[in-house]
Design a binder for these strands. Structure first.
Lengths: 204, 204
DNA sequence: GTCTATAGCCAGATAGAC
DNA sequence: GTCTATCTGGCTATAGAC
């Protein structure tokens, strides 16, 4: 856990804050609800984090630090391109089952505050696709995959993995399935996504 | 325009409300800001729409009624499967350039209030993929495309089209490009997406 | 460190003049 | 229909006892 250095009250606050902020977003989250969830008094939130804004920032950084390794996994691993695609698609589904609201939270708050991106990009451990790009370009040159821009392939991989969770309510309505059937579709995607991508780019 | 039956004040309110709600979401939107944007007094918002909640619902329904035809276009057109994919991917980019915040707004508010979905699915004109599904199944049987579940293909199409706009801030950071270069990537996707999908499913 | 009580502000909603 | 002024409630934040 990334909260292991904090006292029990402080980590209870951070955990509750994560839950509420990720589910409701900064604007709709209530300090009172976070306090209730943590089973402590509202004043304690201010004692440890001074303000809602600072608590939010702590939560955001913590959330981003959980997502970043997932993305770095695909980009910087010492594996073949196809293996990266297979592993990422397989692992991402498992990750989201554990943290269902996390990716949406990050995307929302980045959209609401684009300047955030610049701060975060500058930080250590921010994922960078340059290595992935190099690998894609090589595979194209070798004739293993058809010509495609690494940026577009990367965007496709992210889209196919992330969107089905973020847009789950919309997609459930459109595909007209209940929660259980939708969950089953997501389960299938652990392999479906990689198949779909590799079928598209692999030269026979 | 879907506001053509409204008086000029009422339509000014609805247009401003759309802009503010879509950009900030229900929780962060301010009635005062909507009034300012419309160039009228805050009291008028309540005169015409009674409450923030009712104004929000009017905006949401209006927004959804703009998105639904875009989706119906791919599903119910009398064209071949490949043509549907090509047209949708091409048109969707143009649609989002006109309404940049709309898809994200709909997805967010559906997530915050899942019961909304049930109400909306029940309404007239709610897109339904049964025809698309039938078409996919036929093409699989005829050997035009490889075996794939229509639901998964549909989710893939939606993901590849919608996510790059919703996740634009995150993707800009990860791909490490500025606004101008990212816009260029989106421009390329008008054809890139359909190529990517058709390459994946078409049997040679 | 943890609580209760409350200050202070801000936003949604309404009253009432015109 | 449109405005100004104001009420009311809720939320962040702090003061102060323990």
């Amino acid at each position: 856990m990334d909260t292991k250095e904090l006292g029990s009250t402080e980590s209870a606050i951070l955990n509750s804050a994560k839950e509420i902020f990720e589910r409701k977003g900064m604007a709709a989250a209530r300090m009172q609800e976070i306090a209730d969830e943590a089973g402590i008094n509202k004043a304690m939130l201010h004692y440890y984090y001074r303000s809602k804004q600072l608590l939010f920032e702590a939560v955001f950084k913590s959330a981003f630090s959980m997502l970043a390794p997932q993305i770095n996994g695909i980009i910087n691993a010492e594996t073949s391109l196809f293996e990266k695609i297979i592993n990422f698609s397989n692992n991402y589904v498992l990750f989201v089952l554990k943290h269902p609201y996390l990716p949406n939270f990050i995307i929302q708050e980045l959209n609401r505050n684009p300047d955030f991106v610049k701060q975060i990009v500058a930080e250590k451990n921010f994922p960078n696709i340059s290595k992935f790009k190099q690998q894609v370009d090589e595979e194209v040159k070798k004739g293993v995959i058809r010509p495609i821009k690494a940026e577009q392939l990367f965007i496709n991989i992210m889209s196919l993995n992330i969107f089905p969770f973020i847009g789950s309510q919309l997609l459930k309505g459109l595909v007209n399935v209940n929660d259980e059937a939708y969950k089953q579709l997501m389960e299938e995607r652990k392999t479906e996504i990689a198949d779909f991508i590799i079928n598209s780019i692999k030269l026979k």
